[in-house]
Deep mutational scan, measured.
Amino acid sequence: FIDQHRAALIARVTNVEWLLDALYGKVLTDEQYQAVRAEPTNPSKMRKLFSFTPAWNWTCKDLLLQALRESQSYLVEDLER
């Protein structure tokens, strides 16, 4: 899901800070967390977050999807259609 809908997630996720907090310490290191937060816009934050995903396994991507479902369920539901 995460890889399949990358472009839509970059464009449409609005609550990136919540995602970062949910992933911090589980998937994201402090350095990665700070790097994403330093980006000026939500799309650039999501691009930076996605720059780390090639090194993630399915469990990490599932944690991101779970966080998306909790914070932006309407968006996930729309993309699952």
Rank of each mutant, 00 (worst) to 15 (best):
F1G: 00
F1H: 09
D3Y: 03
D3P: 00
D3T: 01
Q4M: 12
H5E: 08
H5W: 09
H5F: 06
R6T: 06
R6W: 11
A7V: 11
A8P: 00
A8C: 10
A8Y: 11
A8H: 09
L9C: 06
L9E: 03
L9A: 01
I10N: 03
I10C: 05
I10A: 04
I10M: 07
I10W: 03
A11R: 13
A11E: 13
V13E: 06
T14F: 03
T14L: 06
N15M: 02
V16M: 08
V16C: 09
V16G: 01
V16I: 07
W18M: 14
L19T: 01
L19S: 02
L20W: 00
D21G: 09
L23F: 03
Y24N: 13
Y24A: 11
G25K: 14
K26N: 10
L28R: 01
L28W: 03
T29E: 08
T29S: 11
D30S: 11
D30W: 10
D30N: 09
D30F: 08
D30T: 11
D30C: 06
E31I: 06
Q34L: 10
A35P: 04
A35G: 07
A35F: 02
V36N: 02
V36F: 06
V36I: 12
R37A: 14
A38F: 10
A38Q: 12
E39K: 06
E39C: 13
T41D: 15
T41Y: 07
T41N: 14
N42W: 06
P43G: 10
S44F: 02
S44P: 01
S44K: 10
K45T: 03
K45G: 03
R47T: 13
K48Q: 04
K48I: 03
K48C: 04
L49V: 02
L49N: 11
L49M: 01
F50R: 02
F50N: 03
S51K: 00
F52E: 00
T53E: 12
T53N: 00
T53S: 13
P54L: 09
P54A: 14
A55I: 10
W56Y: 00
W56V: 04
W56T: 03
W56H: 09
W56I: 08
W56D: 05
K61M: 08
K61R: 08
D62V: 05
L63F: 09
L63M: 14
L64I: 11
L65G: 05
L65C: 11
L65I: 09
L65P: 00
Q66S: 10
Q66P: 07
Q66R: 14
Q66M: 11
A67L: 14
L68R: 03
R69W: 04
R69G: 03
E70Y: 06
E70D: 12
S71C: 08
S71A: 07
S71L: 02
Q72H: 14
Q72K: 05
Q72C: 10
S73G: 14
Y74H: 14
Y74F: 09
L75V: 08
L75E: 06
V76C: 07
V76R: 01
V76G: 06
V76M: 09
V76I: 13
E77C: 05
E77G: 07
E77R: 11
D78R: 10
D78P: 04
D78G: 11
L79K: 01
L79Q: 04
L79S: 01
E80Q: 13
